[in-house]
Simulated assay, not measured.
Amino acid sequence: MFIFDLHLHSKYSSDGILDPKTITKVAIRRGLNGIAITDHNTIKGGLKAKEYETKNFKVIIGSEIMTNNGEVIGLFLSEEIRSTDLIEVISTIKAQNGIVVIPHPFDKMRHSALYPTDEEAHLIDCIEGFNSRCIFQKYNDKAVEYANKHNLPLVAGSDAHFANEIGNAGIVTQSEDLQDAIIKNNIEIFGSRSMLINHAFTKGLKRWRKIRYG
């Protein structure tokens, strides 16, 4: 059995603070077999974390990219994605043999949420069916409903910005080939919601950085 948290942020995100080395250490200590670093609009955190990958612990390079329609996660990336056009971003992820994930769709508490239409379902590889930072469970439920309607695989992630959130959500698979397991939907998701204080810490961090760096 292999356990992965597929949505984490490092200090390379504008709202992150964790060093990639720290993330890997905490994840290993919590019994995870791997993680995906999905920093905002960059793969720098994933590339750095990859240095700490071991035989028994896998690091997936990813990025959470803001498009003109909302955020899209690319997993198994090898290059930065510069475009902000939804279709171009999806095409670029696929051109890198990556996986297209829609994180926290339909979450009205986030300005960054993407609201995929029925017509766009064929562009998507999988839906994040559980995000620990969805304040209201109904938004996770709506994501699952959309995935089931369009026969799309479900993944999950903690959306961790702080160490106490790492491993709060993720996927379990019996397959050693995670990418294949996701595409073939040979996975199960799990998760628990993050404490509200973590949201407050994130807002405080953003405010502090704005004051310090302008």
Results as ranks from 00 to 15, higher is better:
11 K>Y: 04
36 A>C: 08
19 D>E: 12
180 D>V: 06
55 K>Q: 12
179 Q>N: 13
104 H>V: 04
54 T>C: 02
17 I>K: 08
43 I>Q: 02
211 I>C: 12
132 S>F: 04
14 S>L: 10
98 G>M: 09
203 K>T: 07
128 E>Y: 04
70 G>P: 02
19 D>N: 12
56 N>Q: 13
39 D>F: 12
187 I>F: 06
128 E>I: 01
66 M>I: 07
66 M>Y: 06
119 E>G: 03
50 K>I: 05
151 N>W: 01
112 S>I: 12
182 I>H: 02
52 Y>F: 15
197 I>E: 09
4 F>W: 13
35 I>F: 09
24 T>S: 15
66 M>L: 12
138 K>Q: 07
160 A>L: 09
29 R>V: 01
134 C>G: 09
71 E>I: 06
88 E>Q: 13
43 I>N: 02
76 F>C: 08
167 G>N: 09
36 A>E: 01
3 I>G: 03
157 G>E: 07
2 F>I: 02
4 F>Q: 13
117 T>V: 10
43 I>E: 03
36 A>D: 01
200 A>F: 14
3 I>D: 02
177 D>I: 05
210 K>L: 14
189 I>H: 03
185 N>T: 05
161 H>S: 04
103 P>C: 06
93 I>E: 00
36 A>T: 05
203 K>M: 09
2 F>C: 08
166 I>W: 03
186 N>S: 10
202 T>S: 14
92 T>C: 08
41 N>L: 05
124 I>D: 09
139 Y>T: 06
78 S>M: 02
144 V>T: 13
122 H>M: 00
12 Y>E: 10
49 A>M: 11
113 A>S: 15
99 I>R: 04
141 D>Q: 14
86 L>W: 11
110 R>L: 12
61 I>R: 03
8 L>K: 11
199 H>G: 07
185 N>M: 06
165 E>A: 08
1 M>W: 01
1 M>S: 12
190 F>H: 08
61 I>V: 15
2 F>A: 08
142 K>Q: 12
40 H>P: 08
167 G>V: 05
171 I>F: 07
67 T>L: 03
36 A>L: 08
63 S>C: 05
8 L>P: 10
162 F>S: 11
163 A>T: 06
165 E>Q: 14
145 E>L: 01
107 D>N: 15
55 K>M: 08
128 E>F: 06
179 Q>P: 12
90 I>F: 01
141 D>R: 14
101 V>I: 13
188 E>N: 09
205 L>P: 10
101 V>C: 01
175 S>V: 07
177 D>A: 07
87 I>C: 14
195 M>G: 04
34 G>N: 13
139 Y>V: 02
37 I>S: 12
